[in-house]
Amino acid sequence: MVFGREQASGLRWVGMGGRLELPRGITGFDLDTAPFDDTLFRRFGAVSHAIARIGRGRIGTLEDCAGQVTPNFHLAELHRPSGTAYLLCNAHYPWVAATLRRPGWMGVPFVDLPEVVTAATMFSDFVFPVALDLNRQPEPDELARLTGGELHQYRYWRKGRADEARLGDVIFNFWD
């Protein structure tokens, strides 16, 4: 599958080996710079239910991360005919990704689900990074907009790991 970066249809499926510009505050640190949209969880719920309908599935639980130290993302449990998947939405920016395992503090491999690809054309205010980019290590210029506090957390949490922190780990994390 090949996805465009941003087309006239409103498609917000980004990446495919290009650069992702991570916005300041996406990690959830330096809350002075991280916007908090109290409607994001509700809108993510609507996106999750649409994704479930498209894939002939249903949403199990929807978990709001507001008021918690970790994680920095909302979670939807997606029951699909082929098995359970999990949708993640960053708490500060409407960036959504999917995984086949329930996320934990060590991260999970991200996947591209067909129903998420279809939903990307319907929700132009959400960004859907491709798994190819979420599963790779960030380039220094992709981290350039992060604050000093965010970069400190990135360096701390990637230290001691067999694999370096991936872009997906920066966007969707359990860092405290």
Rank of each mutant, 00 (worst) to 15 (best):
P81Y: 03
N90Q: 11
N90D: 13
A98Q: 02
L78H: 07
V117S: 14
N90Y: 10
V96N: 06
A85S: 01
R56V: 10
R58I: 04
V108Q: 03
N72E: 09
A98M: 07
L87K: 02
V69Q: 11
A52L: 12
V116I: 07
R58N: 10
E77A: 03
R53T: 12
V116F: 05
P103G: 00
A50N: 14
T118E: 15
P35V: 14
A76Q: 04
A46P: 02
T118N: 10
A119L: 10
R101T: 04
I51P: 10
G104M: 01
T118C: 12
E63Y: 06
R101K: 08
R53H: 15
T61H: 06
V108W: 01
F29T: 13
Y86A: 01
R53S: 15
I59L: 11
G25R: 14
I54T: 11
L40N: 02
C89R: 05
G107T: 05
R102M: 00
G28S: 11
R24V: 12
F110P: 01
F36R: 15
R56M: 05
A66I: 03
I26A: 15
R56A: 14
L75M: 01
E115K: 06
H92K: 13
V47T: 07
M106L: 05
R58H: 15
R43I: 07
F73Y: 04
F44T: 03
F29P: 10
A98D: 01
W95Q: 05
L100S: 06
G104R: 02
C89G: 07
I54Q: 09
S82K: 10
G57N: 14
R43A: 03
D32T: 14
T84W: 08
H92Q: 13
N90W: 08
L87D: 00
L62G: 07
D38Y: 07
A66H: 05
L62A: 02
A76L: 01
D37I: 10
L62K: 08
